[in-house]
């Protein structure tokens, strides 16, 4: 614990925390996109869309070993902690940097820094805002941008994303996430001291490739609904899903 504290106090340590929490969030995104793709796999023989089943599965995963929802909530806690930590350290680091460079140049020019790298704070802020919005939209249904009913994931998506502004907004944010990750994933390797000239090319290509794959996967969902490529789902009774 002592070690973690000292690590946290140092600027490299803070970066490492950004990297590790970034990695956790990145892992979440991977899982999330894999789950999302179930939108495209259709329905089971009872007419329940796979994505709805999947949503339900997440709620009960871990049963009977653990009480229902325990796993989901633990995961949510870890993610929440990660997001908070990630934001805390990057904000702290950004403040340090602002102090370290209080006067800017009259004329300034960059030789190497990519826009993605320079705009991490911006892309991150968009993501942060989006996370809140996204939860209020599809998880709690607090923000109503179409018809919403708990558990009917497919229909909720279909209803919201038929609105071009909602779909467009989501697509835009996904691109922003992609930009964040394009620098973020490679940066993580560098921060953890995993990158070196031997692997640099591979790690950079791989980071971009994986990021692209994730983002295209995410974008596919709103885009497909928007362009009317997705069939209407059958109406089914809610207890069919929960088994009650």
């Amino acid at each position: 614990m002592n070690r973690i504290q000292t690590l946290y106090k140092s600027i490299i340590g803070k970066k490492v925390i950004a990297a590790v929490t970034g990695l956790i969030l990145f892992g979440f995104l991977l899982g999330h996109v894999a789950g999302n793709l179930k939108v495209f796999t259709g329905s089971n023989d009872q007419g329940i869309p796979h994505i709805d089943e999947y949503g339900q599965f997440l709620k009960v995963a871990g049963e009977p070993l653990l009480p229902a929802g325990a796993l989901l909530w633990s995961a949510r806690l870890v993610l929440l902690a990660s997001v908070i930590l990630h934001i805390t350290v990057v904000v702290q680091l950004a403040m340090l940097s602002a102090e370290a460079r209080p006067v800017s140049y009259v004329k300034s020019k960059k030789k190497a820094a990519s826009l993605a790298a320079l705009w991490m704070m911006f892309s991150g802020s968009v993501i942060a805002g989006f996370i809140v919005f996204h939860i209020l939209h599809f998880t709690t249904g607090t923000i109503q941008l179409g018809e919403f009913e708990h558990g009917y994931v497919y229909n909720n998506l279909r209803s919201s994303f038929s609105n071009p502004f909602v779909a467009g907004g989501y697509i835009f944010v996904m691109v922003v996430i992609g930009v964040h990750l394009n620098h973020g994933v490679w940066s993580m390797f560098q921060t953890l001291g995993i990158d070196n000239p031997d692997r640099n090319k591979f790690l950079r290509t791989a980071s971009t490739a994986v990021t692209m794959a994730i983002i295209l996967g995410f974008i596919a969902v709103p885009a497909s609904f928007l362009f009317g490529l997705m069939p209407e789902a059958a109406n089914y009774a809610h207890d069919l899903l929960t088994g009650h």
């Binding site: 680091l93 340090l96 370290a100 190497a112 490679w186 940066s187």
Partner: peptide, 21 residues
């Protein structure tokens, strides 16, 4: 590293601008 911090240098964000310049 700890001396570098106490001198008030900022944190590296992997821009690689240093290497280029």
């Amino acid at each position: 590293v700890s001396q570098m911090e106490s001198e008030g240098f900022g944190s590296c964000r992997n821009y690689a601008e240093c290497e280029a310049q």
